[in-house]
Structures are given as structure tokens and as C-alpha cells.
């Protein structure tokens, strides 16, 4: 097991945002974290990234997070934050190189080349980051993040907080296919927050739905993405079609008349 989370709770300013989460992600697995705004997904991610104090246990490759030395941890755990704002004139190349401190400046870093190629930012390599579009910047950050754990042999964890939010549909597919390949072929454990239910359905091996800081439901995509569950979690109406490709397709429906769309949806408690 690459990542093991036991009874994890995170409080911010006295309010418990994440409560008693239990999760595991194994090598080669893509686990997608779903849930409405304010469900605690990003807070959970920040705890895993070591940015917030927490109660409970987070183990990476069997070792408590605090037991790793920072440099070693960075080669095993990479984090793509929701947004990275760069105000200073760094070039694309320089930002990718930040994730690869071991590579020297003299000889070209072949991994950086591969990643820039794969994420279609190679032609932008000399451009200054503040002048790039949102989608280009997001692909750049992903290249930096992937480069960080590329050379490590095993026990690699990739945390992605909405890594496709600024991308066009074609690039969303490309990026998630790359992430999927990292998992399948190189055994990287992936935990990703995704808002697009259909992207999640297409690329997740397993899904966890969070609501009000707790784990609401966990399972395969066909099990999780059902009209009743989506209604309970997000409070919106959907139709779900099973595709021959083997994953469900979620189609949102108009909320209908006022009577059928309750203002405060009743929440099921976690079992």
C-alpha cells in the first residue's frame, strides 16, 4: 500500500473540516475524490501535502509522514496544487527544472524534455510563465510535478487537486491519459480531485465521495455514479447511462419544478 490514511481529522480555526477519513491507495491505482464545494477535499489534500496539522495517521510506504526527511519525501510524493500563480519572469524550462533539482544545468535533462513533449509545452520552453494561458500554465505545473517523482523506483504518490480545471476537452483527455499511464505502467499511486464526473468515470479505478468532511461513499464508478447518490450528495438530478466502453456517463437534467428540487437536500449520514 503506497498511501494509508487512518482516522484522519483536520481542523481549521477550531472547525473540523475533515472528519475520520480512512483511505488507502495502492501502487498503480487511480483514486478519484469527488464531492461538492466545501466537502473538505482540498483540505484533505493539503493535510496529505504536509501543509496542515492533522489528527490520525498518514502513512506513505508504511512510514508516517513526519518520519520522512523533506528531500526524500519530495522524490516520493508530488503535489499539484489547485492553482500556482507565478508573477516573476521565469521561463517554462526553468519551472520544469525546479522539480528536478538533481539535474544539472549544463547537460539537457532528458526527463524534462520527455515531459515537455508529452504535455505539449515544448514549443513554449523559452516563454515567460506569466504570459502563458491558464491551460498552458496548468500543463507546465503538471510537467514539473511529474518530473519530481519520475526517477524514483517505487512507492510514488501523485496528488492532483483539479489538475484539468483550466484545460480544453482534448487536453483534459491527454493529461488524464498521461496520468493513467503513469499509474498503470510505472506503478504510481494517484489521488486526484476531479469535478467533472464523466472524466472521473472514465479514468478512475475507484472513487471516494466526500460530503461535509466525511467519506460518504466509496466504490467503482458504476457503483458511485448513480442518480440517487448524486442527488443525495450534490442535490442535482441526473440520468446515468452505462456505456459499452465500461464506464457510466452522467447527464445532468434540469432541476424541474420547484417542488421536486428541495432547497436543502436531506443528507444521508455516512455508514
Amino acid at each position: 500500500m503506497v498511501l494509508e490514511i487512518q482516522n484522519l481529522s483536520v481542523s481549521l480555526a477550531g472547525t473540523e473540516i475533515v472528519s475520520e477519513i480512512n483511505l488507502t491507495v495502492s501502487a498503480g491505482e487511480v483514486l478519484m475524490l469527488l464531492g461538492p464545494n466545501g466537502a473538505g477535499k482540498s483540505t484533505l489534500m493539503k493535510a496529505l501535502a504536509g501543509e496542515l496539522p492533522y489528527r490520525g495517521r498518514i502513512r506513505l510506504a508504511g512510514r508516517e509522514l513526519g518520519g520522512w526527511c523533506p528531500g526524500e519525501l519530495a522524490r516520493h510524493r508530488a503535489i499539484m496544487p489547485q492553482s500556482v500563480e507565478v508573477n516573476f519572469p521565469l521561463t517554462v524550462e526553468e519551472v520544469v527544472a525546479l522539480g528536478r533539482p538533481a539535474a544539472t544545468r549544463r547537460c539537457a535533462d532528458s526527463v524534462a524534455e520527455i515531459l515537455m513533449e508529452a504535455l505539449e509545452i515544448k514549443h513554449l520552453r523559452h516563454r515567460l510563465v506569466p504570459g502563458l494561458s491558464g491551460g498552458e500554465q496548468q500543463r507546465l505545473q503538471l510537467a514539473r510535478v511529474l518530473g519530481q517523482i519520475w526517477d524514483t523506483r517505487q512507492d510514488r504518490l501523485l496528488l492532483l487537486d483539479e489538475c484539468t480545471s483550466a484545460l480544453d476537452p482534448a487536453h483534459q483527455q491527454m493529461v488524464l491519459e498521461l496520468v493513467g499511464a503513469m499509474a498503470r505502467e510505472h506503478g504510481v499511486a494517484v489521488l486526484a480531485i476531479v469535478h467533472d464526473l464523466n472524466l472521473a468515470a472514465q479514468f478512475a479505478d475507484r472513487m471516494v465521495v466526500m460530503k461535509s468532511g466525511r467519506c460518504f461513499h466509496e466504490g467503482g464508478s458504476s457503483e458511485v455514479l448513480t442518480p440517487s447518490l448524486l442527488k443525495a450528495v450534490y442535490g442535482y438530478r441526473t440520468r446515468v447511462i452505462q456505456l459499452p466502453e465500461g464506464y457510466p456517463l452522467v447527464i445532468p437534467l434540469a432541476s424541474g419544478s420547484a417542488q421536486t428540487a428541495p432547497l436543502n437536500p436531506v443528507c444521508r449520514q455516512a455508514s
Binding site: 493539503k46 504536509g50 501543509e51 523533506p70 526524500e72 519525501l73 519530495a74 522524490r75 508530488a78 500556482v84
Partner: peptide
């Protein structure tokens, strides 16, 4: 960003 400093080790 300050959080990225920690992420990078």
C-alpha cells in the same frame, strides 16, 4: 508559492 517550497522538499 510558499506551499510549493515544502512540496519540493
Amino acid at each position: 508559492g510558499e506551499s510549493v517550497v515544502g512540496h519540493l522538499g
